[in-house]
C-alpha cells in the first residue's frame, strides 16, 4: 500500500500576534497536523513573494501565512500590505506551475485558536487533495 501523502506545510507566524495564538493552541493541547513547521517573523508584511516560491522549491507542499490583521503592533494596514505580497506570490507560483491554492493567508489574532485550527486543517486537507507538487524543472 502506498504511503499516505502527508503534506508539509510551512507556517509564517508573527512575533507579537499570530504566534501567540499558535502558542495558545499548544497551551490548550489542541492538535493540528504535525507535518507543519513554523517560522516567526516580526510582521507578515515583510514576506517576500520569492521566499514563498523558495519554500515550495525546497519541498514544502503548502504555505500558511498567519498574518497580523488589525492587531498588528506595527502597521494598521498590515493585512492589506501582506495581501498584496500574497497576490504577487500567487502569480509567481502560477508561473512556476504551482497551484496558488497551496498558499493561504489569514489574519490570526493573538487568541484566535479556533480560526488557526480551522485554517490550518482546511489548508492541509486542500493540499492533500492536490497531492504532491508536479515540479517543473528549474
Amino acid at each position: 500500500m502506498p504511503e499516505e501523502f502527508k503534506p508539509k506545510i510551512l507556517i509564517f507566524s508573527t512575533n507579537f500576534i499570530s504566534d501567540l495564538a499558535i502558542d495558545l493552541t499548544g497551551l490548550l493541547h489542541r492538535h493540528y497536523p504535525v507535518t507543519t513547521s513554523i517560522i516567526r517573523i516580526p510582521c507578515s508584511s515583510m514576506i517576500r513573494p520569492d521566499i514563498i516560491l523558495y519554500a515550495f522549491q525546497c519541498g514544502f507542499d503548502g504555505v500558511f501565512v498567519a498574518a497580523d490583521g488589525t492587531d498588528c503592533p506595527f502597521l494598521k494596514d498590515c493585512s492589506d500590505r501582506t495581501a498584496k505580497r500574497i497576490a504577487e506570490a500567487m502569480e509567481l507560483l502560477k508561473k512556476h506551475g504551482i497551484e496558488p491554492e497551496r498558499l493561504k493567508m489569514s489574519a490570526i489574532c493573538s487568541v484566535c485558536v479556533e480560526p488557526f485550527l480551522k485554517h490550518i486543517h482546511d489548508l492541509y486537507e486542500k493540499v492533500k487533495k492536490l497531492g504532491p507538487i508536479k515540479r517543473k524543472p528549474e
Binding site: I22, G26, L27, H29, H31, V34, I38
Partner: peptide, 12 residues
Amino acid sequence: NIREDVSWAHSD
C-alpha cells in the same frame, strides 16, 4: 519553541 509549538500541540 518545542513546547507550545511541538510537544503540547502534538502530544498525540
